[in-house]
Design a binder for these strands. Sequence first.
DNA 1: TCATCAATTAGACGTTTGTCGAAATATCGA
DNA 2: TCGATATTTCGACAAACGTCTAATTGATGA
Lengths: 93, 93
Amino acid sequence: MAVKLNDDQFHRIARALADPRRYELLRRIGRSEKCVPCGDLLGCSEISAATLSHHMKELETAGLIESRREGKFVKYRLRRDVLDAYLAKLAQI
Amino acid sequence: MAVKLNDDQFHRIARALADPRRYELLRRIGRSEKCVPCGDLLGCSEISAATLSHHMKELETAGLIESRREGKFVKYRLRRDVLDAYLAKLAQI
DNA sequence: TCATCAATTAGACGTTTGTCGAAATATCGA
DNA sequence: TCGATATTTCGACAAACGTCTAATTGATGA
């Protein structure tokens, strides 16, 4: 069954996608089949760890990604079902 | 041939969609087969004319709508091809 | 237990954004 | 041309946002 987005989550997603850095992070995560370690994301962008953490939180509270801690590391994966739900709702315009 | 979005326009669209009021305005315009007069939009929301004008400009510079003046009135229509191009690009994540 | 590395949180700062009222511009009809 | 109506622009303001450094928390291995 497909994901259902309420107005609040829909709006959160729209805002999350409005920042180019977050969009790139999401692409980076989506491109990988495996979960992506936080450190990798920091490695391929110019932002500070604090800023990265902030952006990851935005993406996660939007529901676009999921995080999992593995020891010292945190890994992320794309919630493609949520992204698809967002696309479906936008397409209804 | 489908519309091609460069990074700047893509980002502009994402930002335009991040505001709930603009999203509603876009829906309102998209729902109508005919062009929608500016005054109608003002009629069914609580914002001032100045704020409405500001939002319409954002939507237009994003490429999501087109405007046409007819005498005293300005009318808008949805650029569905641009919206579709945005959806297609987002779907590539 | 401690030193170390990974990630988050707190606090601050400048920029962008949404909003409005007032003034300006555009168009029409009398 | 003048007055009325529709829309835009200007200038201001508060709130939200992206960013950073410094401090904190979490987890590992020596």
